[in-house]
Design a protein around this nucleic acid. Structure first.
Lengths: 185, 185
DNA sequence: GAAGTTCGGTCAACAATGTTGACTCCCGCT
DNA sequence: AGCGGGAGTCAACATTGTTGACCGAACTTC
């Protein structure tokens, strides 16, 4: 009983420490021994509990998006809503996203990033659209959304980073809106 | 004389092997010993010539874009021209881009990626634009361009990958064009 | 209650990694 | 002839992820 309790708690300690470290330092720069130290346990136990560093990474790095706000917003303001959502995406989401992108040299992490992109960006948008090219529009909008995160976080475009949030929302919102519901000009 | 010749040739052998390996396997998955083996020399010499694995990476991974085609194309077709350029970007550019993105957990590589994004995408576009918000439009277009490469290569969106190239060019070209020279509607 | 099995924990070791230092060798200059 | 410097070789180091051997405590079974 004490054993089980201890095991659960150390397993959770490892999970918590790994989450924090992977988020803040990425995959390659966090070490199993660091995780073990921060969890107050042994490196061997980290592997015993999670099989490998990579599986531990996959178990901890889940990127979820609170897309309920997007369900309510009317279709003609979906672009702006998505832009707001992206720009409000705070620290923890940033860390997970960057960890996935950086780590996606590893095949399994790449798979995880692909899945994340698919059902974090593509699917929610796809569900709101109609028409024969609804899929293409959803994927294009997802690419544009990913491009914003890429420019801000991966490439670190200082010009965009220093921009007024309201103007970025307005510009990117209009852009996304044009992709989602094209003007028939 | 023979020494110098030998040194230059081994240095170039290392350079060539490193370029190939970094492009095809990325930063973390290529090893100094692999580079040395492929160059037919010793791991220690690799370090002696290039100081460290990271400096060797930075010396070999330069992403250049043949943007002369973009200089000729009239402003009203710049979007389409850029889209064509991006979608024709072949294997070697893909490898370098992915290596930079994946490796950009390392601060110096991140700097390199930021510079590359800046004077590969932002600057050429910026040069073609006028008006008070020319900088923002150039940066937004660069983010959209990066988003395409992100969606195709980093996230690996199968839907976009399977799309007809002509339709992708047309769609993304129009999208980029709207960012670069907005319709005043 | 005793024996055994199982499970969490500790420790030492392994192979592979990037990197360094000692040593050899050979060319070109004095 | 000697020698100084640069290229190459080799062994070693610390650090990485991972594994196996042992230990001890608790639950199960007789």
């Amino acid at each position: 009983m004490l054993q089980t309790g201890s095991s659960v708690s150390t397993r959770e300690s490892i999970h918590k420490a790994a989450t924090r470290l992977f988020r803040s330092r990425g995959y390659s720069r966090t070490t199993v021994r660091q995780i073990a130290a921060e969890a107050g346990t042994d490196p061997a136990l980290v592997i015993r509990h999670f099989k490998s560093k990579e599986l531990l990474f996959l178990e901890t790095m889940h990127l979820t998006l609170d897309d309920e706000p997007l369900l309510d917003v009317p279709l003609e303001h979906l672009g702006e809503g998505l832009a707001e959502l992206l720009l409000d995406l705070g620290g923890s989401a940033r860390g997970v996203f960057l960890a996935l992108v950086h780590g996606s040299n590893e095949p399994h992490i790449h798979d995880r990033l692909r899945d994340t992109h698919e059902h974090l960006f593509v699917e929610p948008l796809r569900r709101r659209l109609d028409g024969p090219d609804a899929d293409v529009r959803a994927r294009t909008a997802a690419a544009v959304a990913g491009g914003l995160l890429y420019a801000l976080w991966v490439a670190g475009d200082q010009g965009l980073l220093r921009m007024d949030r309201a103007e970025l929302v307005s510009r990117y919102g209009a852009l996304l809106q044009d992709v989602l519901t094209p003007r028939t000009s």
